[in-house]
C-alpha cells in the first residue's frame, strides 16, 4: 500500500500539510462518531450536519493550500488547473460559475455511481434508500470532493478512477491512494453485515461507513508516514511492489 509522490520540496510540503491536517482533525471526528450513538445514525439523514462538517474542513484546507503555500517560480508559470489560484479579485467570474456547476454535476454523478455499485454489491433494491444514499454521499465526500477542489472538475474524474498518473498537482497521487484505501475499508466493513450476531452495529450501512472513515484515516496516515520517513527506504519498496 504505497504510492509514488513527486519528489520536489514543494510537493512534499503540500502533501505533508494536506495529510497532516487530515490526520489531526479526522481521527477526532472518527473517535467522536465511534464512541457515541452517532455511529448508528450514519445511515440517517440526521447525520447530514456532520457530513457538512467534513465539507467545511475540506474547503478550509483547500483555501489554505491554494493561497498560502507558495509554489516555486518554475511551477507558477504552468497553467495549473485549480480553483483558488486566480486570487481574490476575480472572486465571481463566469468560469468559476461554470466550474462550480460542473463540480456539482460531477459529485452528483459520483454519488449515483456509488449508489449503483452499493446495490450491485447487495444493498436493498426497494427499500433502505436513505441508508444507501447516506453511504454514497459519505463516500462521495471522502473520495470525490477533494480532487474536485484541488484539480478542478476536468481532471477530478481521472484522478478518482486512477486512469492517468496525473502530475498536474502534487496531490493527485494522494487522491488515488485515498480512493483505494477508503474503498478497501468499506469493502472489509461489509463482511460483517450478513452474520447472525444481531448487533446494532451490523445494520446496513453502519460497518461500511465506519470502514470508510477508518480507511480514510489510514490512507492519510500511511501517506504522511511515507513522505515523512527517509525517502530512499520507501522509494525502494514502492518501486519493487508497484501496487
Amino acid at each position: 500500500m504505497f504510492f509514488s509522490p513527486q519528489e520536489d520540496p514543494h510537493s512534499i510540503q503540500v502533501i505533508k500539510f494536506y495529510c497532516g491536517s487530515t490526520c489531526l482533525y479526522f481521527p477526532l471526528l472518527t473517535i467522536l462518531i465511534l464512541c457515541t450513538d452517532l455511529m448508528y445514525k450514519t445511515g440517517r439523514f440526521s447525520f447530514l450536519p456532520y457530513l457538512g462538517l467534513i465539507v467545511l474542513a475540506e474547503f478550509m484546507k483547500s483555501i489554505f493550500i491554494n493561497n498560502y503555500i507558495k509554489e516555486p517560480e518554475k511551477l507558477a508559470g504552468r497553467n495549473a488547473p485549480k480553483l483558488g489560484g486566480t486570487g481574490v479579485r476575480k472572486w465571481f467570474s463566469e468560469k468559476r460559475l461554470k466550474d462550480f456547476s460542473k463540480i456539482l454535476v460531477l459529485l452528483g454523478l459520483v454519488t449515483i455511481g456509488y449508489f449503483i455499485i452499493a446495490i450491485l454489491f447487495g444493498a436493498e433494491l426497494f427499500s433502505k434508500y436513505e441508508e444507501t444514499f447516506m453511504l454514497s454521499s459519505l463516500l462521495m465526500l471522502l473520495t470525490a470532493l477533494p480532487p474536485c477542489l484541488y484539480l478542478g472538475p476536468n481532471y477530478a474524474l481521472g484522478a478518482i478512477l486512477g486512469d492517468e498518473p496525473s502530475s498536474l498537482n502534487p496531490l493527485s497521487p494522494i487522491f488515488q491512494h485515498v480512493v483505494r484505501i477508503t474503498l478497501l475499508g468499506v469493502w472489509l466493513g461489509a463482511f460483517v453485515i450478513p452474520l447472525d450476531w444481531d448487533r446494532p452495529w451490523q445494520e446496513w450501512p453502519v460497518p461500511c461507513c465506519v470502514g470508510a472513515l477508518m480507511g480514510y484515516v489510514a490512507a492519510h496516515a500511511s501517506a504522511l508516514i511515507q513522505v515523512a520517513i527517509p525517502r530512499c527506504l520507501t522509494h525502494g519498496i514502492a518501486s519493487k511492489l508497484k501496487i
Binding site: I117, F121, G122, F191, L195, D196
Partner: peptide
C-alpha cells in the same frame, strides 16, 4: 460457524468485486 451459515454472501461479495 456464522460465516459457514452465510457462505453464499461471501461468494456473492467476492464475485461482484471480481467483476468490478
Amino acid at each position: 460457524s456464522s460465516f459457514i451459515e452465510e457462505e453464499h454472501q461471501t461468494w456473492y461479495f467476492l464475485w461482484i468485486t471480481f467483476l468490478l
